[in-house]
Amino acid sequence: MLEFLTGTGLATSAGLNAYIPMLALGLLDRFTGLVDLPAGWTWLSADASLWILGVLLLLEVVADKFPGVDAVNDAVQTVVRPAAGGIVFASGVGTETTAVHDPGTLFGGSGWVPVLIGAGIALAVHLAKAGTRVGANTVTVGTAAPVLSAAEDVSAVGLVAAALFLPVLVAVLVVAVVVGLWLLARRFRARRTRGRADAAPGGSEWTA
């Protein structure tokens, strides 16, 4: 059960930012004893992987803060984030951490099952994030983009930390992320609807 929560937390994080959970797993496996990646995923901690992930994370963090650019980035990430979600879920369920001492064989010999589950989780989160961002940029003329992006990055880091060190919190954090995205999308959709109504002929009444 803890392995599944670990994978879920990592995949949800990847739906917000593809590179944060991948880089975290690689760095912690490479430089600490807190994470021990399974044999099939040790490439995440290779020098080339860490450098590439670091550069991609920097580009992602910067691009996601600018309205317009964030929309293009989200379009590209529609492929990248689910792929990252599949990788981190599959590696996470087989990773030994301070919280998970015996990962076992949660999915037996079905190697593609965790990859598909992780990709599905990350894709759902990504679509919710991208949809919310479009509504926010429309209503706020892009001013909300850096604030939302920073909140998403912090949430992604928090999900990774919980997934690796306190998996029991993952369910709470995932629910919080999903509800938060839903509430934001609903709020911006309502504001956009009111704005259109006010802009329509006869939508506003003026008194002398």
Rank of each mutant, 00 (worst) to 15 (best):
T12G: 06
G109K: 13
T6M: 15
A63D: 05
A39G: 01
P21F: 04
L166H: 12
A99K: 07
R192K: 13
V35Q: 05
V125A: 02
K65Q: 11
L50Q: 00
A130H: 09
A11M: 02
V62W: 04
G94K: 09
F66T: 12
P114S: 02
L16S: 03
D153F: 11
G40T: 08
V160K: 06
P114V: 05
A190P: 10
F107L: 07
V154T: 08
G203D: 08
A122R: 03
V93Y: 12
A11I: 03
D153T: 14
A150S: 14
P114E: 07
I52W: 09
G118D: 05
T8N: 07
L28I: 06
G111V: 13
A156Y: 01
F66P: 04
W182M: 15
L106W: 05
A156D: 03
M22N: 03
A208R: 12
V172M: 14
L57A: 11
V115D: 08
G135Q: 14
G7T: 00
A128P: 10
W182G: 15
V72L: 15
L25H: 04
A163C: 08
V178Y: 04
V147Y: 11
F188L: 14
L37K: 04
R191A: 15
V139W: 11
F4K: 09
G92P: 04
N17R: 06
L44T: 00
A161F: 14
T42V: 14
T140V: 02
L34P: 01
V139G: 08
